[in-house]
Simulated scan of single mutants.
Amino acid sequence: MKFTRTRTLTAVSAVALLGLAACNSEPATPETDAMEPAATDMTTPAADGTIVTVAQGNSDFSTLVSAVQAADLVETLNGPGPFTVFAPTNAAFDKIPAETRTSLMEPAQKEALSGILTYHVVPGRVDAAALTQQIEQGGGSATLTTVQGGTLTATVVDGTVTLTDAAGNTSKVVMTDVAASNGVIHAIDTVVMPN
């Protein structure tokens, strides 16, 4: 997607203010398995390539890749980043009614789709250990500001990192630390929605 100058400056500001602070130090690996992925049949894709390239290499992200293309976000997510993407799996997208999914993929809905997708992106490289540390330091929760401008709340529920969106809906992290040259991907089981 070709951001307007304001949107680009907003994204860059968000990276400078939030994301880089999380990336400047290597946190110690906590003695917790809170970020261990839930049992899943997904295989971790190759660690080389950009976020888009890595997602394209995993068939469980094919709906996400199609949505990124429809929203014209490929160039952005191929950019230098770094980005942390909470990537909905195909099964996560299947939870959305088919009519809604089809509607969002239409050119007239490009801005709405872009808003939903960028709500899944956090500036900076926040790996599982760093996110777990943020949750612990936050007394059991961490607030993540997304590129879209909204927030997600990360907590640990029954040993699994769970994201809560603006409407109070939750999504579980089912796979962590899929490395890309410009960030990291964590797979989630439900699409989160901004206000």
Rank of each mutant, 00 (worst) to 15 (best):
M1W: 14
F3T: 08
F3K: 12
R5E: 14
T6L: 14
L9E: 11
V12P: 05
V15Q: 09
A21M: 11
A21H: 05
E26D: 12
P30C: 05
P30F: 02
D33K: 13
A34C: 11
A34I: 07
A38K: 13
P45Q: 04
G49W: 12
V54D: 01
A55V: 04
N58A: 15
D60Q: 13
F61P: 04
F61N: 06
F61S: 12
F61R: 07
T63H: 11
T63R: 15
Q69N: 11
A71M: 05
D72W: 12
T76R: 07
T76D: 08
L77T: 09
P82V: 06
P82T: 02
F83W: 08
T84Y: 00
V85A: 02
V85P: 02
A87R: 08
P88M: 13
N90A: 13
D94S: 12
D94G: 10
E99S: 06
E99P: 02
S103H: 11
P107L: 04
P107Q: 04
Q109A: 10
E111I: 13
A112C: 04
L113I: 00
S114R: 14
S114Y: 10
L117E: 01
T118F: 05
T118H: 04
V121I: 13
V121S: 03
V121M: 02
V122P: 04
G124I: 01
G124K: 00
A128P: 01
A129G: 06
A129C: 07
L131Y: 03
Q133C: 12
I135L: 03
E136W: 06
E136C: 04
S141W: 02
A142H: 01
T145D: 03
V147P: 03
T151E: 14
L152I: 05
V156R: 09
D158E: 09
D158R: 03
T160I: 14
L163G: 04
T164C: 00
D165Q: 00
A166T: 13
T170P: 00
K172Q: 10
K172N: 11
K172E: 11
K172V: 05
V173L: 09
M175H: 06
T176E: 00
V178T: 13
A180M: 14
N182K: 11
N182V: 14
N182E: 14
V184Q: 10
I185A: 03
M193A: 13
M193P: 12
